[in-house]
Design a protein around this nucleic acid. Sequence first.
DNA 1: GGGCTGACTAAGCGCTTGCTTAGTCTGTCG
DNA 2: CGACAGACTAAGCAAGCGCTTAGTCAGCCC
Lengths: 216, 216
Amino acid sequence: MLSTVSGPVRPAVPPRLPGVGDTQHRLMEAAADAFADKGFHATTTRDIAARAGLSPAGVYIHFASKEALLFALSERGHEAVRDLIVEAVEAAPTPAEALGRLLATFSQWHAEHYRVGRIVQYEFTHLTPEHQAAVRRLRREIDGVVERVLRAGVGSGAFAVDDVRATVLALLSLCVDVARWYEPGIRRSPAQIGATNASLGLRLVSAAPPTAVSRE
Amino acid sequence: MLSTVSGPVRPAVPPRLPGVGDTQHRLMEAAADAFADKGFHATTTRDIAARAGLSPAGVYIHFASKEALLFALSERGHEAVRDLIVEAVEAAPTPAEALGRLLATFSQWHAEHYRVGRIVQYEFTHLTPEHQAAVRRLRREIDGVVERVLRAGVGSGAFAVDDVRATVLALLSLCVDVARWYEPGIRRSPAQIGATNASLGLRLVSAAPPTAVSRE
DNA sequence: GGGCTGACTAAGCGCTTGCTTAGTCTGTCG
DNA sequence: CGACAGACTAAGCAAGCGCTTAGTCAGCCC
């Protein structure tokens, strides 16, 4: 019982992170596991509570409903991906490099987080209309990032693309669909999947022949 | 039995198609609608029965369980797609044409049948292990068709592909993912989606530069 | 006609669901 | 110390679930 004397590890932020944030995070992890295993509707709130080490009623202190948990998962997932690809694009000097990094990052995320990726796609329709709208807004942001890079490349002559919007959709399919077929222990690692999807995606849009390029 | 002489309309197969097959088909349509609208677990057997114009108990005369309905939908969907692409490939003189027709057919099917396509992908985990295995077998058949066409093209020099299995996966993603984002009234028709996906897919694998080529 | 078959229904069983209520316990602050 | 806040639980409610039971009814065969 010495903890009172010197204080544990987090003395500066006692009312936020230590108890509440922790339990909230544990609940989201538990819900992600359960939803990924059995789907949203087949998952019971009792199951989520048990996985988080709480009683069934304990869930409702942190989330208003089971759907609120699904939304929290979806929103955070989309925000994480959006931030990652924005960062990847910003750091790149040319459209080709920007697109390569975007596709690699995007694909790798969907392999590493394939559980959340599937939940976000497969359970989308179980969100309330308002929450669906919020997620759609985030998706449009992500689409916009890809489209801007593509148009930049077309403008600079690096890319040759017939139908920009169709190609954006195809590139997104390439990355998002990774969550559908990936599973741990598969032949390629998430990083390798990112690398091959980047080169496949570039081949889909590059004006120059695919061989012997990339820098200079 | 020469009942063909005077009998009603279907004298040769009276105990099959007229009543039973009709109701079975209606039930599968009803289940497809309901599963697509609300997902497998959120759909009640009462809902399916009502959509098919039956009492709740009427469902169980034709299908042993709600899961059996999902399996029937999945199995028939996969078989339909498999048969379509096998036919498309068989009719083509070159690997390039075979792949083009395959991608077009495959993509168009996923647009036209996006409801069944989503059910088949999103609700897969709710099948019994035995039924999952049966579906996986059908999927492997489909993968095999694509892989064979790709290897034929590589052998003939028409295609240049680094990693055949990764490319097969990418091509399948392109087509399957159509079911995720398609909805009626969208800019492109299912046939147009098939056409653009065919040319995008060919660009992904062709040995020659994408512009103005295909046959020397 | 009498017996049979098979599609179909009314009623309902046993159980599980999401979520609530009423209360306990711990720790903090004046 | 005593008041209070907030994380948490035991118990449970009303509703809804998949599926069954027991029976009706139309058509067919002998």
